[in-house]
Design a protein around this nucleic acid. Structure first.
Lengths: 105, 105
DNA sequence: TTCATATTTCTAATAATATAGAAATAAACC
DNA sequence: GGTTTATTTCTATATTATTAGAAATATGAA
């Protein structure tokens, strides 16, 4: 990952509505959630939601597929993992004694 | 972690200079790096560097200690881990089959 | 084809952030 | 005490992001 990508991803997540959307999608898993349902659950008006989803999609943190009239959004776990790997890259210059491995998800 | 904290941390990291500073400190480990050395390595003027270090410190992603005339900054690994845990919390509704554990650092 | 529903684009007002020069503070050395 | 060095605060300017109403688009249903 290059720094510009990482900044784009972090910027996408650095906003309360977008972080809520992303976490909702992370918890929903591969099936994803329709745009309207996201807006309803989080109380975000359509135009605003659409703007934020586009920001997340530009950063490749979410992807979408259409199912009839619905657009279903889901989190990109591979992109999330890349971002986390970038943040923790070569942590403590690779000294495992200082830097215990972390388990998550 | 509460969402406001997470947004504050992500905002702190969502900027090229600050992300570079943070990664430098992550890689430097517990010993940390003096402010001036950070600025020199990354080519950031003093006033700008100070502004960015304060942003990172407000988010608790870095801490500082003074050693004589120097101020030594270091990454907060516990805060970084909390942030990552928040992002990945209850991933795929806890379904391990979908969501393989990740190792890092 | 007409209507209802889902989502996106357009738009403009509002708000927040980044930058770095100059001045201020603080510690160490002579 | 006076000087050098390290860092921070003050300040102003420039840039970028957020919000949501209204209009546009697109699918499915009657």
């Amino acid at each position: 990952m290059k720094i510009k990508n990482a900044v784009e991803s972090l910027s996408a997540l650095a906003q309360e509505s977008r972080l809520s959307i992303f976490r909702l999608l992370v918890q929903a898993g591969r099936e994803g959630v329709a745009a309207g349902v996201i807006g309803e659950q989080l109380g975000i008006p359509g135009a605003t939601l659409s703007f934020h989803l586009k920001e997340l999609a530009n950063a490749k943190l979410v992807k979408s597929r259409t199912a009839g009239r619905y657009v279903i959004y889901s989190a990109s776990f591979t992109e999330m993992d890349k971002l986390i790997a970038y943040l923790t890259e070569n942590c403590c210059a690779g000294d495992a004694a200082q830097c215990a491995p972390r388990k998550s998800c």
